[in-house]
């Protein structure tokens, strides 16, 4: 089509001597979801801040909906909706008061803002709590209200900075559903995330950033493809049984590797899978799960950077889901 909805070319931004963003380029086609994926401190938020006119780029060109962030920041601001890393809503006001305030700041009449607030509260499952103080809201409810506030006036571009960080799985899925709905309504979405699963599930395209530079771009499938072929994953929680299995499998495939509670056998095809099961059964080793796994984005990141994955390995649902839930269907 024509020019991408968001165009970033050679963006640089330093704070003192530290280059937070060091020559980042990417484009987001209209109506698609782009995931900006990277660990903490990779420069994701700085890119967002330049793109939303909060920071002036040191070098490079950034345009949103055809407006240049430096020459026409007002045009950019009139084209975007931003929700940041925190729920930027007032605790002491009610959900409805928050929405009405933002609507009226965007030149809606009191009445129009009230009607739109009612509509969004219902859509974001907040109708019953709309007149309660936000301080009584759960984290997930606050994020939904925050997103609703950004959507008071529909904009062609929605920017989400880590929209689900710190949310429980249910709230995360609710957020994902909303992003998908917005996309099907034609909104162009740029979201940053450190969760591989999130980018994988939501994004049409992914830009992987690390230390201020783009280290890979592509569709989730392409990025996963860069890691190579599929593998078979044998999941055994019991450590002794796993060691027994490792001995059995090493006998047949010298290049098996031991993962976190699992053993990875190269060659993700049905015959390998069947042979693994047969050999382990013959040896009397019990397994928790054996599955063909396409490489996860976690693997992709590891392969791309050659070092540790995306931080937050511990509690991140992405990391654990990427491993445990990676069944044959992916």
């Amino acid at each position: 089509m024509t020019e991408p909805m968001i165009q970033v070319e050679g963006l640089r931004k330093s704070f003192g001597k530290r280059a937070a963003v060091d020559g980042v380029s990417f484009g987001v086609p209209a109506g698609s979801v782009m995931g900006l994926l990277g660990p903490n401190g990779a420069g994701k938020t700085t890119v967002i801040n330049c793109l939303t006119t909060l920071l002036r780029p040191d070098a490079g060109r950034v345009s949103v909906a055809g407006f240049d962030v430096e020459r026409d920041p007002a045009g950019v601001r009139a084209s975007i909706a931003l929700t940041g890393q925190f729920a930027a809503v007032d605790q002491l006001l009610t959900g409805r008061q928050n929405l009405v305030l933002f609507g009226r700041l965007l030149r809606m009449s009191r009445r129009a803002a009230g009607e739109r607030a009612t509509e969004l509260l219902a859509r974001f499952d907040l109708a019953e709590s709309g007149d309660r103080g936000v301080r009584e809201y759960s984290g997930g409810m606050r994020r939904r209200l925050d997103l609703a506030a950004a959507l008071m006036v529909p904009r062609p571009v929605l920017v989400l900075d880590e929209p689900t960080t710190g949310l429980d799985p249910r709230s995360r899925h609710a957020m994902w559903r909303v992003v998908r709905e917005l996309r099907s309504a034609g909104t162009t979405v740029l979201l940053t995330t450190q969760y591989l699963e999130e980018a994988d599930r939501l994004a049409d395209g992914i830009v992987v950033v690390a230390r201020g530079k783009v280290i890979a771009t592509g569709t989730p499938e392409e990025l996963k493809g860069k890691v190579g072929v599929s593998v078979c994953e044998v999941r055994i929680d019991d450590e002794r049984a796993r060691r027994d299995a490792l001995v059995v499998l090493l006998d047949r495939w010298p290049d098996v590797t031991e993962g976190d509670g699992s053993i990875v056998v190269p060659g993700g095809d049905a015959r390998t899978l069947a042979e693994i099961v047969r050999r382990l059964t013959e040896a009397g080793v019990e397994t928790d799960n054996v599955a063909i796994r396409r490489p996860s984005l976690d693997d992709a990141f590891f392969a791309l950077t050659g070092h540790g994955a995306l931080g937050h390995h511990d509690g991140s649902p992405a990391a654990s889901n990427g491993r445990a839930g990676a069944g044959a269907g992916r």
Binding site: T2, M5, A30, G31, A65, G66, F67, D72, A74, G75, R77, A78, S79, L101, R104, L105, R107, V153, P154, R155, P156, A185, G186, T187, T188
Partner: peptide, 28 residues
């Protein structure tokens, strides 16, 4: 150009001006 029907038109909106200043200051 983006064919984004239903969106607020992405034309440059004057956010300056005394009317906006007074109205938005009062709201804030």
């Amino acid at each position: 150009m983006s064919g984004a029907a239903g969106f607020a038109p992405a034309v440059a909106v004057a956010e300056g001006g005394p009317v906006n200043l007074v109205r938005q200051s009062a709201l804030l």
